[in-house]
Write a protein that binds this DNA or RNA. Structure first.
Lengths: 218, 218
DNA sequence: CATATTAATGAATACATATTCATTTGATTC
DNA sequence: GAATCAAATGAATATGTATTCATTAATATG
């Protein structure tokens, strides 16, 4: 459907550029394959997912996958990078639409939960990915992951500057803890299969509440 | 060194039972192999770790591993189960030595961080494992994982009963969030390679502080 | 519509590694 | 110290799957 390059969706500036027929065709194939791979990776995990599974899911032959992606790894990374870029784009966009640090932070939490809930295949992939990274001590991570973290930290600093957060705490440490809370919340969100339409806003309220005020009895 | 069965270390009751020579020999081999496997799995991850790697690390031949473990999976699970049992044992022991729900909870957090920091090979394995579980929706998990969770939840309920935690929050939800915080803290603890002897007590203080009182400016 | 160009196919190949098992080595008993 | 039993070895086997590439199909071009 979408005939623009992915980058145009995730870069803040610049007008999306229309691509020529050939590029458009290529992009469509890549998208097909990425969608299929997302699903299969999430279902089976990186190692148990075979290229044949992915090709079958995308309704292409095995070899076709290799016309569009270098190898299995690079297909995997394409998914991760594309999605994180999109999330970062959404975060910047939505937090830009509200004023005040507290509101921005709240928006970021809401949009993160919303994103991962919708893209839960990807969330499962990401959890795997994070652990791969940890295990290999591949500290470089991808620049884009670093970007997202930096962005959240900057929001925390703003909130601190506004006087809503104690100044004796390290923004970096606060961020780690906040990410821990968000991840835990998504897990519990995804586990509750019954109540699908779970009240996200309510949940964000609870998180902000816990985060800002703790669990102490009032 | 240790000539007792593992169970004796992780079961609360019963006097450790001395084993006969043959059993003892067998247990020593298993221990050797588990130690080696722990290391290799943590370094390379489950899939890239080969049985040959593990055998080499343990200074045995490839086939020897199969005399003591059914297959690669069962070796892997042995590690996870053994360690979680030990952690649960420690948690029960140490929290039993203090009084008051708040103090118990604080002790549990401290001991968890301490355990994972010391056993960081295992922490890395566990993170992988958790994600495997999540992805496969293998909800059964192992009984022992469930036990640990139940134990933490019981501490939270006690703290709630003592009036230190708001009663409108679900213990289960609080636990998820607390586990998220702990996990995030360990990550950040392990990343800071420089300051090894990081002040654990200080960190637990911060966590309890954030958890009970939030990050709000006083 | 003949030719050239590009895309797609999937069977064949290459490779990695879990697992087996015939053989060797070491320990125990009488 | 010969005979028996147990433990350890590691080369050989089995399996699974990533990747290639000769072939076929589809599309564009003059």
């Amino acid at each position: 459907m979408n005939t623009y390059s992915f980058d145009s969706l995730s870069e803040e500036a610049s007008v999306p550029v229309l691509l020529d027929r050939k590029q458009r065709h290529r992009l469509l194939r890549k998208t097909d394959i990425i969608r299929a791979a997302e699903h299969v990776f999430a279902l089976k995990g990186f190692h148990k997912a075979t290229i044949q599974d992915i090709a079958r899911q995308a309704q292409y032959a095995t070899g076709t996958v290799y016309l569009y992606f270098e190898d299995k790894n690079s297909l995997y990374f394409s998914i991760v990078v594309e999605k994180i870029k999109r999330l970062l784009y959404i975060l910047k966009l939505k937090t830009g639409q509200v004023t005040g640090a507290r509101k921005k932070l709240e928006t970021a939490i809401y949009e993160s939960l919303n994103f991962f809930q919708k893209e839960n295949d990807f969330f499962r992939i990401l959890i795997q990915e994070e652990s791969h990274w940890t295990i290999r001590r591949r500290m470089a991570k991808s620049a884009v992951t670093q970007d997202r973290r930096d962005f959240l930290i900057s929001l925390i600093k703003e909130t601190q500057a506004e006087g809503l957060i104690r100044k004796d705490l390290q923004p970096r440490q606060i961020n780690d803890i906040l990410e821990g809370i968000i991840t835990a919340s998504i897990f519990s969100l995804l586990e509750e299969e019954a109540s699908q339409a779970k009240d996200l806003k309510g949940m964000v309220g609870t998180i902000m509440d816990l985060f800002l005020n703790g669990v102490k009895k009032k």
